[in-house]
Design a protein around this nucleic acid. Sequence first.
DNA 1: ATCATATTTCAACAACTCTTGAATTATAAT
DNA 2: ATTATAATTCAAGAGTTGTTGAAATATGAT
Lengths: 103, 103
Amino acid sequence: MIEEEAAAMFQALSNADRLKVIRALVTAGPEGLNAGDIAQMVGATPSRASFHLAALSKAGFVQVERQSRSLRYTVDFSRIGALLSFLMTDCCNDSPQLKYCCT
Amino acid sequence: MIEEEAAAMFQALSNADRLKVIRALVTAGPEGLNAGDIAQMVGATPSRASFHLAALSKAGFVQVERQSRSLRYTVDFSRIGALLSFLMTDCCNDSPQLKYCCT
DNA sequence: ATCATATTTCAACAACTCTTGAATTATAAT
DNA sequence: ATTATAATTCAAGAGTTGTTGAAATATGAT
């Protein structure tokens, strides 16, 4: 992964509302959640939640699928894993000083 | 770690120059690098490098110590580890779907 | 067709980020 | 004291981000 892409992904995680969204989706599991429920769970207006979901989607952290009137969002773990790998391997050269955090 | 702090740390990583700085410091090892060398290595003016170093310092990713006329910067792995832990554990609930990325 | 629900998109605005180049601070050498 | 080196700080300006509430789009029910 190139630095610009990693930077854009970190940018997508640089907001407390968006971190809450990811947490909610992780907890929800493979079923995911629709936009309205997400908005309620993170305490945001529909418009605000939509804005943050779009940011997460653009960075690839969530996927979306229409289900009748709702849009169902799910988390993409592989994308989070890719960013973790970038930080550990590309950025930190797999330093042994980081080892403890993965046991 | 609370979400706001994690978000601020991700924000500090959301810039390609700053990621380059961290990479340079990781490669340099415990000796660290002074500001001028860092600026040269990432291809930034002294002022620009200083700005990004301040951002990394505020987020705790680097530490700084004066050495004669130079300021020597070193990377703080424990801080990076803390953020990795937040993402894996607090945010992703140690999901098995993330396991592969730490082998 | 009309209406209700679910969500996004838009425009306006305030706040923040980044870059640039000049000025400033701190240290050391002559 | 003066000068040179190393780095930060500052002010101005361009661009980006996030919030709000209203308007628009998409789907489904009556």
